[in-house]
Computed example of a mutant assay.
Amino acid sequence: MLNKLRDSLQPTMEKVGSAFASTGLSANFWTGLGLALAIAAGVGYASASFGIVGKYPASVIGGTLLLMSGFFDMIDGTVARVTKQASRKGAFLDSSFDKIAEVVIFIGIAIGGLANPVWCMIGLGMSLLVSYTRARAESLGVELKGIGIGERAERMLILAIVGFIPLNGTATDDGAMGWAVILVSIVAGITLVQRIVATAKKLL
């Protein structure tokens, strides 16, 4: 769903990518920074169990870091294109780091008690299956980019943004992270079915 938005923002992203490329730092550096921020987000979510902050502040901290991670997840590819250094190694690292980030995020949410652990496992499992179906389909020559209502970017946005919502309108509430995880699980499940159906049709 966000692919159309990315396409419309492409000229702007190219300018931003050029600015980051001018630092001399490689696309892989920005990929690593995105992963580091995602890990920090996972720790932020988990911090609710450390007794330092409450559940809602932990959701805000984690969500903010997750949005920052998502920004650099877009920047790395743009930098690679601008510098003409796109490579299979970079694509592999980007994809692998994305999966590591998702695992860390869901684990952090579960440890922090921000959502039911069972729903966290369902959400993580569905998310990884969505990625697996694309990888497997593309290994068979079927392109699935843009197929489905909830790719990784959409799912992470749901977690970050919905987690900012206090359940009863105050900063002392637990927050809506529990609902965010349920929503991500449903969206990922629908996307999984969509991709299986789309791939099966093309392989007939």
Rank of each mutant, 00 (worst) to 15 (best):
F72D: 00
D76E: 04
T78R: 06
A80H: 02
R81Q: 04
K84E: 11
Q85C: 09
A86L: 12
R88A: 11
L93P: 07
S96L: 14
S96Y: 07
K99A: 12
I100Y: 13
A101W: 00
A101H: 04
A101L: 07
E102Q: 15
V104Y: 12
F106R: 12
G108T: 01
I109Q: 12
I109A: 09
I109D: 11
I111E: 12
G112T: 00
G112S: 01
G112N: 02
A115S: 09
N116D: 08
N116Q: 06
N116E: 08
P117V: 07
V118Y: 10
W119P: 06
W119M: 14
C120Y: 02
C120E: 06
I122N: 05
G123C: 03
G125Q: 04
S127Q: 08
L129T: 06
L129V: 15
S131G: 09
S131Q: 13
Y132F: 15
Y132C: 13
T133L: 13
R134S: 11
A135W: 01
A135T: 01
R136M: 09
A137H: 00
G141H: 08
V142W: 02
E143P: 04
E143F: 12
L144K: 10
L144F: 11
L144E: 02
L144M: 10
K145T: 15
G146Q: 06
G146D: 05
G146E: 03
I147E: 11
I149M: 15
I149Q: 14
G150W: 03
G150M: 06
R152S: 01
A153S: 14
M156P: 10
L157N: 05
I158R: 00
I158K: 00
I158M: 01
A160C: 06
A160S: 02
A160T: 02
A160F: 00
I161N: 03
P166N: 04
L167M: 14
N168W: 12
G169V: 06
T170G: 11
A171M: 15
T172A: 14
D173G: 08
A176N: 00
M177I: 09
G178H: 05
A180D: 02
I182E: 11
V184R: 00
S185T: 07
V187H: 04
A188H: 06
G189A: 07
I190W: 06
I190C: 13
L192H: 01
L192E: 01
V193P: 13
Q194K: 10
Q194R: 10
R195D: 06
I196W: 02
V197P: 09
A198I: 08
A198N: 14
T199C: 05
A200S: 15
K201Q: 15
K201T: 14
